[in-house]
Amino acid sequence: MNTTLVTIKDLTVSVKDGNQKKYLIEQINFDIIQEHIVSLVGESGSGKTTTALCLGRLLSLALTIESGKIIFNGQDFLTLTEKQLQQFRGAEIGFIFQEPLYAFNPLLTIGFQIEEVLIAHSDRNRKQRQSRVLELLDMVRISDPMRVFRSYPHQLSGGMRQRAMIAQAIAASPKLIIADEPTSNLDVTLQAEIIELFQELNQKLHLAILLITHDLGLVRHLSDDLVVMKSGRIVEKGRTKDVLAMPRHSYTQELLEATH
């Protein structure tokens, strides 16, 4: 079962700065294997989030993809039309943001915002959708799904919101989840619970997860593969165990020392 889900090939992203072009990502290559958890680590500004946004083709207008390919499940992702992309996002790729408070619309209930994904990507009727949402909330171990369903984002605690967002991301059963620093705003005990949840979902739902993080502890604990980025380039990649046991690049060594 080691088939490749996503291949990123020679991906280069640039931003226009006056007459000059600056490269945010240069020639990066890596694969995401089905059902694997891949960690993407690196300092701030090293291009982690840009890489993630490329996977949803949601770069801001100032950024352009210069060259490269993203092949998702055999399909060249960069040639899809906007309409095809809409069917892709949410259904094939789920996204978990760093701060769920901002990623939920404050005027709509959590329940409705999860339901929205189902409206867009499934033909369930209203009743089926609602029971599916409750099931999802239960799946991310929210103890009182009915209450959370009817709540507005500001009424929930940080941990609850994060769980609700995970529920939203997996609602249309995607094959890949991209989690952009999912635990950095949570306290330590909550972090542990969320990590456990990721592991569980990874096994139960056969999800591949692209985990963007600073936290090497999390990486060691959770991920199968590791990609280390610095200044828009990949400096090291491989099996997590191997890389952490024998870091070859000086930056990886520094990173390891800094967290010990």
Binding site: G90, I93, F97, N105, E116, A120
Partner: peptide, 24 residues
């Protein structure tokens, strides 16, 4: 806003995003 980006990421159509996530 990030929730508009999030809504795009969920695959909602532009019209729905304007009606539900911007105009309200």
């Amino acid at each position: 806003r990030e929730y508009v980006l999030a809504a795009k990421m969920l695959g909602l159509s532009d019209f729905k995003i304007i009606i539900r996530h911007i105009l309200p």
